[in-house]
Amino acid sequence: MRVCVVGDELVAGLGDARGLGWVGRVVARTTTEEPLFVAPLAVPGESTSALSGRWEAETQRRFGAHSDNRLVVGLGPQDLFDGTSLARSRLNLANVLDVAAASRVSCFVVGPPPRPDVDDDALAQLSQAFSDVCRRRHVPYVETHEPLRTHDQWHADVAAGDGIHPGQAGYGLLAWLVLHNGWHSWLGLPSEAG
């Protein structure tokens, strides 16, 4: 099984002193019979337009012709900074998921968590739009904004770092959300307890 993870700097774990981010923590808690190849392919500040333009070329080099190829999409708030309409954001994500499905690449999407430099209501609407695109395509979507919106530990961890990105505790929370919202079943593995 080969898993490519595309998205912004949270995919790379920016701000995590341990260098694991949520991706490393999730992989560390994933037990498979065969070795699991995971390739984080992060671009800081990536919008859905940029992501939809690059993901295919980057993942093709890592996917195998006879492998079980999987795509994880980690979404951020960049579309809001760029002034991208909700309709365009939805279309960009839909295009990624549709092209992947046509290539028999199973997808898993992680939504954008809250950030103090982003309008909270606008980010909630963006996350809801992403969720709707995934629901219509029967693609697992991990809602991170709503559970972390008023989470004291999340906000304290972000404030303790650069004021925008989480540290170890915040990435732990993101990993927990991923692990407890369909990760194992998406991989065809028994759910992890705890």
Rank of each mutant, 00 (worst) to 15 (best):
R2G: 06
C4S: 06
V11L: 08
V11K: 12
G13L: 07
G13F: 13
L14A: 11
D16H: 08
A17Q: 13
L20P: 04
G21L: 02
G21Y: 01
V23L: 01
R25V: 06
T30N: 05
P35K: 05
L36Q: 02
F37Q: 14
A39F: 12
L41T: 11
A42P: 15
E46R: 12
T48G: 07
S49R: 13
S49F: 06
S52W: 10
S52K: 13
G53L: 10
R54P: 00
E58C: 05
Q60A: 14
Q60E: 13
R62W: 10
R62S: 02
G64R: 05
S67K: 15
S67Y: 15
S67P: 03
P77L: 10
Q78S: 11
D82C: 05
L86G: 02
S89C: 04
S89I: 05
R90E: 12
N92S: 05
N95P: 09
D98S: 14
V99A: 07
A100E: 01
A101L: 11
R104Q: 13
G111V: 02
P114Y: 03
R115N: 04
R115T: 07
P116A: 07
V118M: 01
A124C: 08
L126F: 00
L126C: 00
S127K: 04
S127M: 03
A129Q: 07
F130R: 06
V133C: 11
R137V: 08
P140Y: 07
V142L: 06
H145F: 02
E146C: 03
E146I: 06
P147N: 01
L148I: 01
H151E: 10
D152Q: 11
H155S: 01
A156M: 13
D157L: 06
D157S: 11
D157E: 09
A160C: 11
A160H: 10
D162P: 12
H165K: 09
Q168I: 07
L173D: 00
L174H: 09
A175I: 08
A175N: 04
H180W: 08
W183V: 00
S185K: 01
S185C: 03
S185R: 04
G188C: 10
G188D: 07
L189K: 02
L189M: 01
S191E: 14
G194S: 06
G194N: 08
G194M: 10
